[in-house]
Each structure stands twice: as C-alpha cells, then as structure tokens.
Amino acid sequence: MVTLRTQKEIEVITMYEIGRLCIKIAGRDARKKAIIVDILDGFFVLIDGQVRRRKCNIKHLEPLDKVLKIKKNASHSEVVDILKKEGIEVVDTKPKEKKEKTKAVKEAVKTEEKTEKKPAQKKETKTTTEKKKTTKTKK
C-alpha cells in the first residue's frame, strides 16, 4: 500500500471513480479513450476501452467530464457496447492464429539439416584435436 501524505493527492484519487471516461497520456495507447473498470491499490486503476485492458497509474491518465454507468469488473464486450452509445468506436484487432502446417514443415527441415550437419562437424573437430595431440607429443 502507498501511504497518502498530502490532501491534494487524496482529492486527485477520489476523482477516479468506476465508470469515469479518461484519455491515456503516456505509452503506445496515448491519445486513446478508456473507462475505469476497477480501482486497485494506491495510485493504480484497471482500464478498458480503445486501449488494451490493463492496470494503469493515475499519473498516466487525464480525466474527462463524463461518468458512465458500469458494473465493477465489467467485461470487454460490455465496455464496447457502452462506448458505442457515446459515439466512441472501438476497433478490436484479431489475435494471430498459429499455423500448424508451416511449423511442421519448418521442424522437418530443421531436423534434416541437423542430421546432415552434425556428423560432418564432429569429424572435423576430431581431426583437429588429433593433430594437436600429435604435435604436443612430438615436442
């Protein structure tokens, strides 16, 4: 827990309630709008909306004048519906699908390369070590 010292800090934290519209100031989601979904310890809140759903410091947020009605810990789909009514569109990127075929092909190629390369390398190393031993014994 972070200890609150000044009265200003307490006033700032009370501004950030559940459902408050904010703009993110810092990071790759800067200049995008978000809603506060949950309040965590100290200066941290949970945000969702145009940004990725994540924990965020209050110092990285700028509050707006609107407070929307949301349940605590509302899901992402609920947040999107509420933001659409306000005229804020949320574009969700599709998660990347893993292609099994290409991976299997790559692994097969790798195993072939390993089997071809390994014996050739070992032979070379052996020959070099043998040569060194022979030179040492001669001296």
Binding site: I23, I25, A26, G27, R28, A30, R31, E62, L64
Partner: peptide, 21 residues
C-alpha cells in the same frame, strides 16, 4: 510508437494531449 512519436518529446506530447482533452 506513441502519438506524436518522432515529432514531439514525451513531456510535450503529454501537454498537448491534455490541452486537447
């Protein structure tokens, strides 16, 4: 990858976004 990245420094980009809000 920030907004205004490569044009404003981090502090100045914060101030401009705050002014817009």
């Amino acid at each position: 990858e920030r907004a205004f990245g490569g044009y404003l420094c981090s502090e100045c980009s914060r101030q401009t976004i705050k002014k817009e809000a």
